[in-house]
Design a protein around this nucleic acid. Structure first.
Lengths: 143, 143
DNA sequence: GCCAAATTGTAGCCTTGGCTCTATCTTCTG
DNA sequence: CAGAAGATAGAGCCAAGGCTACAATTTGGC
């Protein structure tokens, strides 16, 4: 038994935080694409692979793969050479993500973050905002 | 020419935000490990692979791979079967990351986020906090 | 000082999310 | 209504970051 310190409970808690952050990361793709598809359907009546890819800043095979995952997870449906559409679950996720994004940006703005930085940072931060934190943000925005 | 809408500038800006978030993600590993190694060196005089792995919540080969990357990037040094230590650059990164983490947690707490949620969420959010946002956070904390 | 246990290293596999290249299908235009 | 242009699909490659299994090295206790 070498190094004595480091209570096991603390170590476990810290490991959990990192594991949690890694897991959250895997949701990022689903959340970003569902919101994007929702945006496109609202704007154009459908979401095309090319538009999704363009807006996400990836190539179209990458977008195709992502959509395949959305379909596997029951968030989207599509038929070959036709557009992509969200399922009920997909719409629910899109609505949730959209609301959360809005709140995160608003909080950043309220804290004095410049608008462009707020948009950029929110895009990455929002996926790590838990329900508890989101609730606190909402309460704060209502003063 | 199919769908007319979507000004190209907006599309490009949005694509940039997503690309940026993806790139930031690749820094996460470096930042987390350098801070962890710094913690361990402070506490024990050295950072052992086993302890790093344990605290990060991964297996030791994963920690070894991460350390290999840190060494490739000039952030850490180590000799076989000896501990891992940070370089100048590594120490600088650790200091920066530690300070940023503190600030993010403090901002969350100031906004009324429960302490446990603040710690968990900060672990994921902090990597997406830009210099501009960090400056705004600091200003806010100083009232 | 030796042997067992702990630690570290290494090889090889998996998944994810990027990419390029090529083939196929749709759509638009002349 | 045929061909060209554009959009979608699909195969196959790569790197990152997990993992397990196994080999080698250090270390601690007797």
């Amino acid at each position: 038994m070498p190094h004595p310190p480091l209570p096991d409970s603390d170590a476990a808690a810290q490991a959990d935080r990192f594991s949690h952050a890694r897991t959250a990361q895997s949701m990022t793709l689903l959340e970003d694409y569902t919101e994007m598809i929702d945006d496109l359907v609202r704007a154009h009546g459908e979401a095309r692979i090319t538009d999704i890819a363009h807006l996400m800043g990836v190539t179209h095979p990458t977008a195709t793969k992502a959509v395949a995952r959305l379909k596997r997870e029951g968030l989207a449906v599509s038929r070959p050479y036709r557009g992509v559409f969200l399922t009920e679950a997909g719409n629910a996720m899109a609505a949730r993500v959209r609301a959360r994004h809005r709140i995160v940006v608003d909080v950043l703005l309220a804290l004095g973050v410049p608008a462009d930085a707020a948009e950029i940072d929110a895009e990455g931060m929002e996926h790590h905002v838990s329900a508890a934190t989101l609730a606190a943000f909402e309460a704060y925005l209502r003063r």
